[in-house]
Design a protein around this nucleic acid. Sequence first.
RNA 1: GGCGCGAUAGCAAAGUGGUUAUGCCACAGCUUGCAAAGCUGUGUACGCUAGUUCGAAUCUGGCUCGCGCCUCCA
Length: 448
Amino acid sequence: MLKIYNSLSRDKQIFTPIDAGKVRMYVCGMTVYDFCHLGHARVMVIFDMVSRWMRASNYEVTYVRNITDIDDKIIKRANENNEAIDVLTQRFIDAMDEDSEKLGIIRPDIEPRATQYVQGMLDMIAKLIEKGHAYQATNGDVFYSVRSFQGYGKLSGKSLEDLRAGERVEVDTFKKDPMDFVLWKSVKPNEPNWDSPWGKGRPGWHIECSVMSAEHLGAHFDIHGGGQDLQFPHHENEIAQSEAAHNCQMANFWMHNGFVRVDDEKMSKSLGNFFTIRTVLEKYDAEVVRFFILRAHYRSPLNYSDQHLDDAKASLTRLYTALRGREVSTNIIDWNHPQAQRFKEAMDDDFNTSEAVAVLFDLAKIKTDESISLLKNLGAVMGILQRNADEFMQGETSQALDVDAMIVARIEAKKAKNFAEADRIRKQLADAGIILEDTPQGTTWRRA
RNA sequence: GGCGCGAUAGCAAAGUGGUUAUGCCACAGCUUGCAAAGCUGUGUACGCUAGUUCGAAUCUGGCUCGCGCCUCCA
């Protein structure tokens, strides 16, 4: 029985899908004006894990993750680069796909791009105006009137009074209420624009997700996810738009993953303390990064540092060491196995991947054929441990040294009791970052 | 200022009103020609404080510290 922490109710709730056996999930994806950083990697990995577990639990999953391809920052970046907007966005979508694939992420079923849903946005805005939830201001922008929506603040736990009291709320004289947010921005010189009943312009950010989720999942769906920083105002605004337009609850469950931090501060574009996925992958194996993300609980903050990735690498290496040279009999999981049950209980408890990973280590220690097979097959559920162990431990890059020949030479030296020569060879390899391991089946090696 | 989250051993990270989390790391033993890997053991863990309780690190209150949202952000 799956329980999920629901941001909306602020507690764990038993997950019951709207349609039996089916899960419809929407996750806010990337605004594509730059390379993805580790914070984006976390969202991708976490919701990949969620959809994998749902599928492993025999749900039929429809997973939608959108792409924001029209936005202030995109326009700004395109201007800076003197690059066409669609060229820029496609470049970073391609980069995102590359990063995502390396991290072992199964592509979402649908990846809608905002610019392809403008008509739907116009329809929803018209509906909101008609229902008295939106208005066109004198500057031409169309705003959502937060005062018109009863439940505004229910997701973030904020009240309009508290928000108004906040000093950081900038007062826009065109708005009826300072918290009103834009649905349609009237055109500015040299900016992309679409025709609308309110004049040429482009959509606001929040309306995009309300429209794309409804188009693919319906007005009412099971799970809406994203990073914690989107809870307010983005998700709050989505609720206001969708629920006002459709007269029904938008999502039953809201899931928010914790931040990736650097030195205990949130990793973000604005702070400039971010590491892109590709930068990290120059130094660390992508599976190590995935494992680093999965061994922490998705709602906890996750501190990034080389030390922590080194630690994750050593841990993952231990699991692969257990798999090395072992036959995996089947890819069918016996969920009645005590360890498989522990794994399932952990995952069903709000996706407790820390606990699930602990089960993997216990299986690695047990070492029976059954436990090793289970280790590999449960790893598959998490999207790890699926490579050949030698490949993981040795890497794919070619050798400057002929390792195999040196191993043979060392074995000869050992047979001749010439241990000085044997140790010299081992030292030479060690200096090149190659560690030898003598086993009853012969000598193997791995990278440090 | 408003709202919220967190504080677990050297590092990381789950969890529980009383019984070994787990991983990394360090040390010792077994093993090995010596190593590595593996196995075994050790490493005085639960921010401070006052309560509730037979018993609290786990529940309640207070305090301290850290972080986040309130502005674009995954």
